[in-house]
């Protein structure tokens, strides 16, 4: 009978479970921002090479996601949002995720080096290291500033895209990095405000747990205030243009209004309407980033089509 028990195991992994390990939803943001970084750069890249670059930047991001899931399986098992992930659900072994993460890290870095240049490849390796080791293994469980410093990992992709085209770093790519870096904390703290007890149960020192929810609201406002000048400064660089400037002005005004609203709210008010303002700020912050990077792309396209567009 014990042999039959082995055959009747229902939890063997399908291909989709390995895809889940790469965090496809995070990957979509990586693909988009890396593509913008590459396409707005003033150096022409062959479309197929550009496609390969973005693919392997995304795969590198996926690899760091798999390493993150390997290391965090214990946290994921207690949080409602992450309980269904392949490792806590028992469909994939922890060791398999580690192996997949390491193998894909190596493949993506080497392939990016061959397709573009070794500077971009080194940046990708740094990103994977930063997310998997500095953020996941070191900071996440140690400090309530985990989100702030961990945000750097998510901020690297446009810089890598830019490096694929130009082979280096410049003011524009640093500002694109800074934009995502400053955007990450308000975005995730808004999530933490309405994802209530999950983080405390898992023992992750989120700001909401260590410093209280009112302090988190003030932090969201403070980081939003710091984000605005970065977003506006990007408009003045050569990759900025009228579309980006207009988008930045409108979106940043809405961001500040939303953040100020969150800072004024008390916990009782938030409980009363089921965290509606927090949820809408979280949703807005996602479109904020997509629209700003989309505007950069629009200005780049218009520069190609309309002579004298931009500055």
């Amino acid at each position: 009978m014990s042999d039959l028990g082995l055959i009747e195991r229902q939890d063997e992994a399908g291909f989709g479970d390995y895809v889940q390990l790469l965090k496809p939803r995070v990957m979509s943001l990586v693909v988009f921002t890396a593509a913008v970084g590459l396409l707005v750069a003033p150096v022409h890249v062959h479309p197929f090479v550009a496609f390969v670059c973005i693919l392997f930047i995304a795969l590198g991001g996926g690899a760091s996601g798999a390493l993150n899931m390997w290391y965090e399986a214990d946290i994921d098992a207690v949080m409602r949002r992450t309980r269904g992930r392949p490792i806590p659900a028992g469909r994939v072994e922890g060791g398999e995720a580690l192996g997949l993460g390491l193998a894909l890290s190596g493949i993506s870095v080497v392939m990016l080096g061959l397709a573009a240049n070794w500077f971009a490849a080194a940046l990708l390796a740094l990103t994977i290291f930063f997310y998997a080791v500095v953020y996941t293994m070191w900071l996440k469980r140690a400090t309530p500033q985990n989100i702030v410093i961990g945000g750097a990992a998510g901020a690297f992709p446009p810089m890598i895209g830019w490096a694929c085209a130009t082979g280096g770093v410049s003011v524009e790519s640093i500002l694109m990095f800074a934009l995502i870096f400053m955007w990450t904390p308000p975005h995730f703290w808004a999530l933490a405000l309405f994802m209530k007890d999950d983080y405390s149960k898992a023992g992750v020192p989120m700001l909401t747990v260590t410093h209280g929810r009112q302090a988190t609201r003030r932090h969201i406002l403070a980081y939003s205030l710091l984000l605005v000048p970065v977003a506006l400064a990007l408009a003045l660089t050569p990759i900025g243009g009228p579309v980006y400037l207009a988008a930045a002005i409108v979106l940043n005004m809405r961001l500040l209004r939303g953040a100020a609203g969150l800072a004024r709210r008390t916990e009782a008010e938030a409980e009363a309407d089921g965290y509606a303002a927090e949820k809408s700020f979280f949703g807005f912050s996602l479109s904020y980033l997509f629209l700003l990077f989309g505007a950069l792309l629009a200005d780049a396209a218009l520069r190609g089509l309309v002579p004298g567009w931009g500055w």
Binding site: I7, Q10, E12, A13, G14
Partner: peptide, 10 residues
């Protein structure tokens, strides 16, 4: 078996 289907997808 379901197990074969998952293996085939892999």
């Amino acid at each position: 078996h379901e197990l074969h289907r998952r293996r085939r997808s892999r």
